[in-house]
Design a protein around this nucleic acid. Sequence first.
DNA 1: TTGTCATTTCAGAAATTCCTGAACATATCG
DNA 2: CGATATGTTCAGGAATTTCTGAAATGACAA
Lengths: 195, 195
Amino acid sequence: MDLPPSTAAFVLHFGEMGSRWGINRTVGQIYALLFLSDRPLPADEIATQLGFSRSNVSMGLKELENWRLIKLQHLPGDRREHFTTPDDVWAIVRILAEERRKREVDPTLTLLRDTLMQTPRGDAERHAHQRMESLHEVISLLTGWMDDVQKLPDERLVALLKLGGRVARVLEATDRFHEIVTGRDKNKRRTPKEG
Amino acid sequence: MDLPPSTAAFVLHFGEMGSRWGINRTVGQIYALLFLSDRPLPADEIATQLGFSRSNVSMGLKELENWRLIKLQHLPGDRREHFTTPDDVWAIVRILAEERRKREVDPTLTLLRDTLMQTPRGDAERHAHQRMESLHEVISLLTGWMDDVQKLPDERLVALLKLGGRVARVLEATDRFHEIVTGRDKNKRRTPKEG
DNA sequence: TTGTCATTTCAGAAATTCCTGAACATATCG
DNA sequence: CGATATGTTCAGGAATTTCTGAAATGACAA
């Protein structure tokens, strides 16, 4: 690697990180290199820079294509395919979230739903059934939230994240406001006064 | 495995899912089994149920302990250690988030920060530097949000998630309200998106 | 102390994943 | 049409990870 030291460090780090996830070292390094590059890179150049075989790079790029994480483009006067990552980091994050969800979460939800259709027999099964119900509920909530925020434009998403836990305060305030205006507390079903 | 079929299916599924993450099949299956069990299980019983060697289970449990995902307890009249998962699924989710963050995100942020201290030389390095800046910003935002919502009690967290993208509407309303009251637009500071 | 049961460690076997080179496929140019 | 450049596939070797059995360690009761 005759890359600048900081680039090399980043590439190596991402290789390691990649191997902690499902993705392997090679693929992680390829992506890191593309991410930092100031121009689209052809496969053979990636192979040279990272010291991988050409075929390995080919397979890595294919995997990244399956993940929709890279863009392919042709440069004028060059027959080779060149690869880039999306310019916008948020775009990458969104794609990652979608793909991981598709591969990991959805199959789990399907399994849980299928199982929860059946009636449990005996104490042990009944308990397992309840556990799966709680798990299903939590996962549904999380993915539902994901779906929702995925629809927001970047700016709003960023605003929302910046607000962080303070949203809870806004919620409280909104609730109180609502309460004042309508004369009832929408978070309590029936207050003794109303009974 | 003489487990009920639905339990067996869940256990196998989690084994597969585990191996997509950094965690391995064995550890995933052990956790799934403990999660569904209606009572604390000792290591040898786990080994029998899943058909693993006793030593493998020992290593798996140790890994789960490092992740703080299981609790150890002693039952009266039994010398063996018994293991359970937290009762509350949200507790599990919180721990998972913390540990993944500690292992994957924090080291990345450190690397990025260290690199961003240095001054880039030449076009390529300057571009790489900018890319790392954007990445750092996105990751900081996401983890900052995580920190914030981790502080919320379960109830509020659930409420917030249920609200999902509709929070954006509340934000809009709050902004307009604020604008009207103070006569200025509080979002008109510098935006991070200039590169 | 000794004996028994429970747990951990670890060298190396087994399984899996990764990576390469060679062969093949495909395209474009002269 | 070759000749050359580019891209893919895949068998099998290399590297890594996982798993086991045997031995060591620890814990406790008698």
